[in-house]
């Protein structure tokens, strides 16, 4: 029984250590984001500077599915047509690599840092 407990602690400790290592890499390498990229099905459909405050509707053809709001250098989803509202409840993001995922609409808001080849606005 005692041996089992030791094995348990080694296994779970190891897994948590791996997670901690990834967290360390994530926090050490992350930079302030410059843009909020709107991805739909893996392709970027729009990109907005975090410095430009405003409300940007994300459309699915004609209907607006999500409302992206950029305020105070952070991006968040203020409204969505999905039933679960997970993306609306998600906290505002501003660091490079952070994401807000809207699974039902297959929309991902991804914060990017690089400024190379990045137009101010693509619609």
């Amino acid at each position: 029984m005692r041996k089992r407990l030791r094995n348990d602690i080694l296994l779970i400790g190891g897994v948590l250590l791996i997670a901690a290592a990834f967290a360390l890499i994530f926090f050490l390498t992350r930079k302030e984001g410059a843009y909020a990229a709107v991805m739909k099905n893996g392709t970027e459909i729009a990109r907005y500077a975090l410095s430009a405050e405003g409300e940007y509707p994300i459309t699915d053809g004609e209907t607006v599915t999500n409302l992206l709001v950029i305020r105070g250098g952070k991006a968040e989803i203020a409204e969505a047509t999905c039933p679960d509202q997970i993306c609306v409840n998600h906290r505002a993001v501003s660091k490079a690599g952070e994401t807000i995922v809207c699974l039902p609409q297959e929309v991902v808001i991804k914060i990017v840092a690089e400024t190379k080849n990045a137009p101010d606005m693509v619609v």
């Binding site: 779970i12 897994v15 948590l16 791996i18 997670a19 990834f22 967290a23 994530f26 991805m39 099905n41 893996g42 392709t43 690599g97 952070e98 994401t99 995922v101 699974l103 297959e106 991902v108 991804k110």
Partner: peptide, 23 residues
Amino acid sequence: VAILVLETAEIGYYMIVLTVTGT
């Protein structure tokens, strides 16, 4: 599955938090 469907590898960072809460 989320990474494959949405083609966004950054979603993988959720695993950091999810490993702790999963434990």
